[in-house]
Simulated scan of single mutants.
Amino acid sequence: MTAASPLPSAFPLPSATPAELGLDPAKLDLLCARIEADIAAGHHPGAQVALARHGKLALFRSFGAARAGVAASDASLWLLYSNTKVITAAGLWALAEDGLLRLTDPIAQHLPGFEAGGKGAITFIELLTHQAGFPGAEIPPAAWEDAAKLRELVCALTLQWEPGSRVRYHPSAAHWVAAAVIRAVTGEDHRAYLRRRIIAPLGLDAELFVGVPVEMQARTADMHDVDGAVRMPEGTAAFLAAGVPGGGGYGTARAMAAFYQALLQGGALAGRRIISPRMMAYAVRNYTGDRVDEYNGMPMHRGLGPHLRGTTPAMRGLGAIAHPGTFGHGGVGSSYCWGDPESGLSFAFLSNTRQTEEFHGPRMDTLSTLAHAAVIS
């Protein structure tokens, strides 16, 4: 297999050995061995993993194949799926911090027309915590590059239940609403805004994309179904470019580990600040308590973008032994990224198969638990 091109620029996190960062190398070896075993067993062709702690990178490894005939490399870009939601949410945090909106505001205050169909009282908090009331809504590809059409469609969304009355994961449409708000408030496309305000200031603009430029698309890994077929429209030029705000970002594992390092460090990375510590503390509160998320069948302890471990017996993706304040998000069947504020550890695992939840849930619990167990000092 050929390998993808090398990384084009320096990275904001310096590297250190696991031992230098108080991590048990043996546990990280077990973590990597599990990834290798899953690839050998045919669960996915390739993957990438990264761990960082206290502003330094402890582990960054690529495994298997990114696409047919192309070995996974450190430059490979992996579909983040819903990990993208936290990046988009950070854009709303920044709008609030810059005084352009309040997260307690009704969305319609900043996106006139959104009030249609009984949506006038929905706040940004309800939107980001999956309480907005339209979990089944979708935005078609025809609106991806048409700002006027997107605004028309999100304003016409219809409610399935009263906003705030239930918690149910909104896979797609909620973050298209966020994209429409970003354009309405700033005049910028959400892709340009997120790059300017969140991604580039952290020094991650060569490895993290919401909307992959044409010249970077050859670095992307294919996404597969369980049967091995390449998924569509994922991987098409239109999908790569669209920057679907709830599920279309691409990045490296170390970029996502670094992004979560910034969130753990109160909104700054290597001296570059995007969000204040107070805004970060506000974003990672538990807004839904122990209410069950009907989509996941368990309490998800929703923050304003990420979800939290909490203290319920079961938790998706973050690791059973995680500190209750650990926060993060997953990508359907393929990935999880998180940060632990107690240990300072951030973690990112990205793969290129959309696996069943029956496989993905236990797999992520094992990998995340190994990462937490590696913290020994």
Rank of each mutant, 00 (worst) to 15 (best):
F63C: 00
F63M: 06
F63K: 00
G64V: 10
A65I: 04
A65K: 07
A65H: 13
A66Y: 01
A66N: 04
R67H: 05
R67P: 00
R67L: 04
A68C: 06
A68G: 09
G69C: 07
G69Q: 09
V70G: 00
A71W: 04
A72T: 01
A72I: 02
A72V: 02
A72S: 14
S73W: 01
S73E: 04
S73K: 07
S73H: 14
D74S: 07
D74H: 06
A75V: 03
S76G: 11
S76P: 15
S76L: 14
L77W: 08
W78K: 10
W78R: 07
W78S: 13
L79E: 15
L79A: 05
L79R: 11
L79K: 08
L79Q: 15
L80V: 11
L80W: 05
Y81F: 15
Y81S: 13
S82Q: 14
S82V: 15
S82M: 13
N83K: 10
N83I: 15
T84Q: 12
T84D: 05
K85L: 02
K85S: 01
V86Q: 03
V86W: 12
I87V: 15
I87K: 11
I87P: 00
T88C: 11
A89Y: 00
A89I: 00
A89E: 00
A89C: 06
G91Q: 02
L92Y: 00
W93C: 07
A94E: 02
L95N: 02
A96F: 08
A96G: 06
E97P: 03
D98T: 13
G99I: 11
G99L: 04
L100I: 02
L100S: 10
L101H: 09
L101P: 04
R102S: 14
R102Q: 05
R102D: 13
R102H: 04
L103D: 01
L103W: 02
T104V: 11
D105C: 14
P106N: 12
I107A: 10
I107S: 08
